Amino acid sequence: MSLDGLILREARVDDYPSLAALEQKVIDAERPYNASLKEKGAYYYDIENGVFQGSCPIFSFYAAA
């Protein structure tokens, strides 16, 4: 696997919806294998606080044009 052509940057406020949606897709995919995940409101990371408050760095990857 090569990471050539990917750019890493600190997440911005406008990244929040995409990051939160991605986290939910991961949780939805893992739910059949983990009965302890709540049906609603499950999360792994406090993405909202990390992005809006800057309390922890969250990074975003995207392909270079």
Score class of each variant (00 low, 15 high):
S2F: 07
S2M: 11
S2K: 14
L3H: 13
D4I: 10
D4V: 13
G5P: 11
G5N: 13
I7T: 15
E10N: 03
A11F: 01
R12N: 03
V13R: 14
V13M: 11
D14L: 10
D14I: 11
D15R: 03
D15C: 06
Y16D: 06
Y16W: 14
S18V: 10
L19A: 10
A20C: 08
A20Q: 13
A21S: 05
A21I: 03
L22V: 12
L22Y: 06
L22E: 08
Q24A: 11
V26N: 03
I27N: 04
I27A: 03
A29D: 09
E30L: 13
R31G: 07
P32M: 04
P32G: 02
P32N: 01
Y33P: 06
Y33T: 08
N34F: 04
N34E: 02
A35N: 03
A35Y: 01
A35K: 12
L37E: 00
K38W: 02
K38R: 08
K38D: 07
E39N: 04
E39T: 06
K40M: 12
G41N: 06
A42N: 06
A42S: 11
Y43M: 08
Y43E: 09
Y43N: 08
Y44I: 03
I47V: 12
I47N: 05
N49M: 04
G50I: 01
F52G: 04
Q53L: 14
G54T: 01
F59S: 09
S60I: 15
S60T: 15
S60K: 15
F61V: 15
Y62C: 08
A63L: 13
A63F: 09
A64Y: 05
A64W: 03
A64Q: 14
A65Q: 09
A65V: 03
A65S: 10
